[in-house]
Amino acid sequence: MAAVLHFTGFIKGVTYKTCLGENLSTINLDVFDVNKERGYGLIKSPTTEIAYSKWVSPKRTRSYPFARIYNTYNSSKVITIIPVIKDEGKDGDIDKIQYSTISWMNLLNIYIVLAYYETAKKSTKKGQINKNKLSNQKFANEFVTFQISEILAYRQSALHWNKNLFEERFTQTFEKALDSYDSIFNQTGVILHSREGLDKYLHKIKDEFEEFKNISLKGSESASKREVLTSHKLEYLVDGLKATFSIENYLGGIYYLTPDEIIFENNTADFRLVKYTS
């Protein structure tokens, strides 16, 4: 088994230069539909504009949303639209937004727009017709655009917005998402993951918001540990060394990362192809 190293650190500040940014297409807010627009772009209001990206799942490694977020980094004000939960049906995956995702957005000064899926269809893909799986899930667009309008007029930092959003609206949004999935079940007949377990999860968060943080961080740490013990054909390890990071910052965030490889040279650790794994 390859050796496993663990590094800890503290981030005092974040500076970066975008090298491969794109020219973003622009859409007016009054006609913006999160379900029809591309994964990232610019939203324009009569007085200002804001860059956006959207996630198709709250799990960061499901669809690699950081690639879309990266394309918005050159903008002065940036939002990202994230579903609080995505249930693909009893025979599919179910993912929930994690506290560590909030920490990453706080660190990068990105405003979070919470979203939930309002409609869906039974999957008719080959091999899935007889399974309980959903496809073509669509966000509640008005719920999304209302938050975007609020952020356009908001004058404090993304940290303040995200903190208030999750302390004051997260549980209500999560309940809306669960109610919406009940409606989707009634419309499609697709059996979903048990709501009882999700209600218990939400009840813990209602009783103590800090529990949301604890549950999420434990999951992130476990994912990082699993990744460091795994190798696959897309990884090239010169000396077999893999490592994990746990990094903290002034905002109270804790970040668990796993690089593809670590090489020691001249008493310096060189980390290659760092990727997000939790």
Rank of each mutant, 00 (worst) to 15 (best):
A2Q: 15
A2I: 12
G9P: 00
F10A: 08
I11T: 01
V14S: 03
C19N: 15
L20W: 13
N23K: 15
S25M: 07
D30P: 04
D30E: 15
V31G: 06
D33K: 03
D33E: 09
D33I: 02
V34N: 08
K36I: 03
G39Y: 00
L42T: 10
L42K: 14
L42A: 10
K44I: 05
T47C: 11
T47W: 01
T48S: 07
T48Y: 03
W55I: 01
W55E: 02
V56R: 15
P58F: 00
P58C: 00
K59G: 11
K59P: 09
R60L: 09
R60W: 13
T61I: 14
R62Q: 13
I69N: 02
N71R: 14
N71D: 04
T72R: 00
T72F: 00
Y73F: 10
S75C: 08
K77F: 03
K77S: 03
P83N: 02
D87Q: 09
D87K: 11
E88A: 09
G92Q: 15
I97E: 05
Q98R: 15
Y99P: 14
S103F: 11
S103N: 08
M105H: 14
N106D: 03
N109V: 01
I110A: 01
I112R: 01
V113E: 06
A115D: 02
Y117P: 03
Y117W: 04
Y117C: 04
Y117N: 00
E118W: 05
S123L: 06
T124H: 11
K125F: 08
K126F: 14
I129Y: 06
N130S: 12
N132A: 05
L134K: 06
N136D: 15
N136A: 14
Q137L: 10
Q137K: 02
F139I: 04
E142M: 02
Q147A: 12
R155T: 14
R155L: 11
Q156S: 14
Q156W: 14
A158S: 00
H160F: 12
H160L: 05
N162A: 00
K163A: 10
K163W: 06
N164Y: 08
N164R: 13
L165C: 10
L165G: 01
F166R: 08
R169V: 07
F170V: 08
F170N: 09
Q172F: 13
T173Y: 02
Y181N: 00
Y181W: 03
D182F: 10
D182S: 07
I184K: 05
Q187G: 04
I191N: 14
I191H: 09
H193G: 02
S194Q: 11
E196D: 11
E196N: 13
L198D: 00
L198G: 02
D199Q: 11
Y201P: 05
K204A: 14
K204V: 13
K206D: 08
E208P: 06
F209E: 11
E210G: 06
K218F: 07
S222Y: 15
E227M: 09
S231E: 14
H232M: 05
K233A: 15
L237W: 01
L237R: 04
V238A: 15
D239V: 07
G240R: 04
G240E: 10
K242V: 02
F245W: 12
I247S: 01
E248W: 12
Y256N: 12
T258F: 09
P259L: 07
D260E: 13
D260N: 09
F264A: 13
E265D: 11
T268I: 13
A269F: 08
D270W: 12
F271T: 10
V274G: 06
Y276D: 10
Y276P: 09
T277W: 08
S278V: 10
